[in-house]
């Protein structure tokens, strides 16, 4: 066990965890940030996606040690002053979910994509999001939601 200071959603949080422990385990089981989900533990499903310095990473494949130096954003950190981020707003308006368990990871991957490309094509969306699984099969709506978010972003929505 070692002590780490993590920068999560703009807050400095101290946590005691094992060196090889995953960021996912620390977020969910030690910090009660349960919006980030466990799906497979092997980086195959994307349910645990968070942003590290703005880029999508799999929290189940990231050790707490390697996360300690970085700015981490989880699904809980996207809403600002009661206002949803453009991606959250778009997912809600398109109802781009069924059971919703994959949604946090989808939103984080889409947020990462849109920060690199303001207006991605269908092919770019598919490539960027293909590591995220929706077992309910909501893919066509998720693609629509990402494009919708791009439009909200273009209209000056906050990020």
């Amino acid at each position: 066990m070692a002590n780490y200071e993590l920068n999560i959603n703009g807050r400095k949080l101290r946590v005691s965890a094992a060196q090889e422990e995953t960021l996912l385990s620390v977020l969910r089981d030690r910090l009660d940030l349960t919006g980030t989900k466990y799906g497979c533990g092997e980086g195959q499903c994307g349910a645990c996606t968070v942003l590290m310095e703005g880029r999508a990473v799999r929290a189940c494949q990231t050790t707490v040690q390697s996360a300690a130096q970085a700015k981490i954003t989880t699904i809980e950190g996207l809403e600002k002053n009661g206002k949803l981020s453009p991606v959250q707003q778009a997912f809600l308006e398109e109802e781009a979910f069924q059971c919703g368990y994959c949604t946090a990871g989808m939103i984080m991957s889409a947020t990462s994509l849109l920060s690199e490309r303001a207006n991605p094509s269908d092919e770019q969306i598919e490539r960027a999001m293909n590591g995220n699984v929706c077992r309910c099969g909501t893919y066509p709506r998720i693609v629509e939601a990402v494009k919708h978010a791009a439009r909200i972003g273009a209209l000056g929505g906050t990020r």
């Binding site: 919006g35 809600l92 979910f97």
Partner: peptide
């Protein structure tokens, strides 16, 4: 719906 997109 809102609770799904905020992780709440």
């Amino acid at each position: 719906g809102r609770a799904f997109v905020t992780g709440a």
